[in-house]
Design a protein around this nucleic acid. Sequence first.
DNA 1: GCCGTTTTCGGCCCGACTGTTTTCAGTCG
Length: 562
Amino acid sequence: MPLLDAYTVADLLDEIGARLELSGESPFKVRAYQNGAEVLRALKLPLAGLVEDRKLKALPGIGEALAEKISKLHRTGSHPLLERLREEVPDGLLRLVALPGLGPKKALRLREDLGIDDLDALERAIDDGSLAKAKGFSAKAAEKLKHALGFVRASAGRLRLNDADALLSVAAAELRAQPGVTQVWPAGEARRRCETVGELCVVAAADRPERLPAKAGPGERVRVLAVKPGCFGAALLCATGSEKHVAELNARAKKEGLALSEDGLTRKGKAVAAPAEADIYESLGLPYIEPELREGRGELDAKDQKARGKLVADADLKGIVHCHSTYSDGANTLEQMAEAVRAMGLQYFGIADHSKSAGYAGGLKEDRVKRQREEVDALNERYAKEKAPFRVFHGIESDIREDGSLDYDDEVLANFDYVVASVHSRFDLDEAAQTARIVKAISHPATTILGHATGRLLLRREGYKVDLEQVLAACAKHGVAVEVNAHPVRLDLDWRWHARALELGAWLSINPDAHNTEELKLVAYGVAVARKGGVPPDKVLNALDAKAFEKHLLARRKRWKK
DNA sequence: GCCGTTTTCGGCCCGACTGTTTTCAGTCG
């Protein structure tokens, strides 16, 4: 059994926590496991060393019992407690609590009163009316659950992009270890950087492709398309899709007397020399088209290519400006976060912890805001003395209150370098009210960035109802950047709206919303979807260098004070 | 399950909304 890394152990601790909760355990014990998982994810050192040196107990929130569990999970991949819970708490119950509006208490009640322990049984109980009559439920509750069920069913079998990446990289590594394999590349929706992925596929080139397995990766979930090296480009192109993109390429090929398939590009059955994807595009009189853009949305159109220009890339980002620290619900200190951003080679870091209304997340009351400002100033003083310039900006992720106001008085707001305004409550407002609320927050002169525009949680919760056209137009009008929240659970603003946002004249800001130093690297997912949305670097707020970014913030302040 | 000069028990980030058990438990962020 291989030694499990901190992240995998953290997932197992979360699983133990979730199953304990569903066996009626104390919520505090449950939280202890969740907390332990967070601690592991924020770990600076490799887990193996801590286990060997018996240093786990030195970590905050890890005591005797958790240290034992973590050690055993790390060494053996499992633990008797986990095994027992897997027997006692059915997987279906875990899926039930994932439904919005259905927590552990109600799920347990469903199991005890109605014998419901999976989604199918729940659906039957909704349809035959027994749920509506059950104690603690109602016709309205049943209707809501029916809707939630539909959402979950539609996402069945799909994975978020980061989870797909993890499985694909394991599968690719397995294949690269096979004899005679020359090239391996993930394909499909994951390569197109779609926010969720249905089918997992890798393309492998080998001298004897017939010898490669048809499936690979954990649980053999990844389909393997094995081809001869000469066909790699064509196979990769076809397996990457989208179907529409490939069909359009094929139509173009046909006009030139060519045919495109997984076996290659052919003329009258004879192969045309085109070993790489770029060669195939060239043979069809096209420039290379980035995988992210291959959605059949006009990317083959020369006009479209000209208008699009260069796509933003990881290296274009100069700073990271929406992160959390231990001041609110982050796992790392302000200084650790700043240092981690500096270590990424960036020029500036913006802290934007939760504002005071977000009690659940330890939102900052005014006195903590002041203290944080002092710490930011002290850090900047220190950084100013160093050779490589680095800046920390003091921001806040202000809740947008139900009436559209921000979460502090103007005089407090005026002391921040910038404000990310986000909705964290009352998701259920109707579209007109939600839109008006958000537009009002955008129009506040303190607002710099609109956080996660729809509040969606991929595969878990739909976004709130909002008229994005109006919201984006308001952002353009007031000079507020629209966040592309890079967290793989969000990827919000949806890439399908990026071009429209730019058209209306809004800027975008690619933010990881990191709650620990590890999550900083998730910013790459935001870059990926921004590329998919056709975003160029010169429309990305945090692609400005530190000076230009500061100038932008100062100009907004000046305008406010007038 | 963790933590602690208020330490071996009794707390544990908290405030708001929701629906309906009609006075508050459950859920959410």
